[in-house]
Design a protein around this nucleic acid. Structure first.
Lengths: 189, 189
DNA sequence: ACTACCATTATTACCTGGTACTAATAGTAG
DNA sequence: CTACTATTAGTACCAGGTAATAATGGTAGT
């Protein structure tokens, strides 16, 4: 026995996860066992065949693109009191940042704050009409940005003013004042 | 002849682009021709076989996610005079908008303008420090937003002021004033 | 030492979705 | 009537498998 079965199987899983494009034949020579052994292993581990794996990667792609851009709130909402206050968290990933220096693009922080402000307004149609923002510290990949939004005023003209402050730890990285238009002008529900 | 060859081929290309996961057999029944005809068509149009198409989509996955979010300029830059002015165009797609009303999210317009402002500055490291924006008209899916940015001042403290105005046709939909920090403080190169 | 059991390997038939090639048929234009 | 094009048919072959059945080898229990 070259390597215990169990060990080979866990390693097999690892190998395939890292490179789903590998054939059973390649795996067989890699582990120095027969193709049949690899197939028995895949059966036991419920790992699908090469083509299925490739197809899976391909179909995942479309979903992925959507979740990134079509997301209603950029970041994860962790608290929401409608028409009052809300909090969301966004972890800065490499795709949110400039590749040169790993600093988050300004519009990512803006997007988090803007989405939060819109979500905060309990209305069918809420649209940002004005924003005034400051980027007080650069944010790097890997940092978690906590955005806190609260409504400062519900005006009579169908607009609301919302303040958003975003933090990394206890450091303020972003300050924004958003004016949001509400479709229905009454404040109550 | 059900449909002229040429017409079928262009339609074939279209069909496969929209659904790369379709087999020759399915295409054959769809176009009401034989499998061989489909294969001849694919040969002529240099369209690869199903598995190759799937593999292509799968390998493109990583790259593609990048192009959407990591894109240096959101939208297509069509004119750039460094440190002076720049223009980009962005077509509003469904994923840029609220699904309920097909109105573009504010941060999409902000992202276009912000990216353009950053790209305009001829510097290794340019970061937005402040922005003041107004959304003067809602933009709908299918509209093409033309953003025009120009530098209004290069300040001595390493900051530049950039004005961005975005239009759909001749209607102004967005106005923004961005303050951008430059890493190297000299204006010349 | 014998048996039971497990892991491994081998073999065979079959599947999908093709490539590559050759040949036959149908329809149309000159 | 012929030439040409489009289409269809058929065959051999391929990769990368599934499914099932059988043979081999080693190790543990008693």
């Amino acid at each position: 026995m070259r390597v215990p079965k169990k060990e080979r199987q866990t390693e097999l899983q690892h190998t395939i996860e890292q490179n789903p494009f590998i054939t059973d034949e390649a795996l067989a020579t890699h582990f120095n066992v027969s193709i049949q052994t690899i197939r028995l292993d895949r059966m036991e581990m419920k790992i699908p065949e090469l083509r299925e794996r490739i197809k899976h990667v391909a179909t995942e792609r479309l979903d992925d693109v959507r979740t990134l851009t079509e997301n209603e709130v950029i970041g994860d909402m962790i608290d929401l009191k409608l028409d009052t206050s809300a909090i969301s968290i966004l972890e800065i990933l490499p795709e949110h940042a400039f590749s040169r220096n790993a600093i988050a693009r300004g519009h990512i922080l803006f997007a988090q704050a803007n989405s939060l402000a819109i979500a905060l307004i309990d209305d069918e149609l809420a649209l940002t009409t004005k924003a005034n923002v400051q980027f007080t510290r650069s944010v790097h990949v890997g940092e978690r940005v906590v955005a806190k939004a609260f409504v400062s005023s519900h005006r009579q003209d169908g607009r609301s003013d919302i303040n958003v402050e975003s933090f990394v730890g206890d450091e303020c990285v972003f300050i924004g004042e958003f004016t949001v238009y509400r479709s229905s002008k009454e404040e109550s529900k």
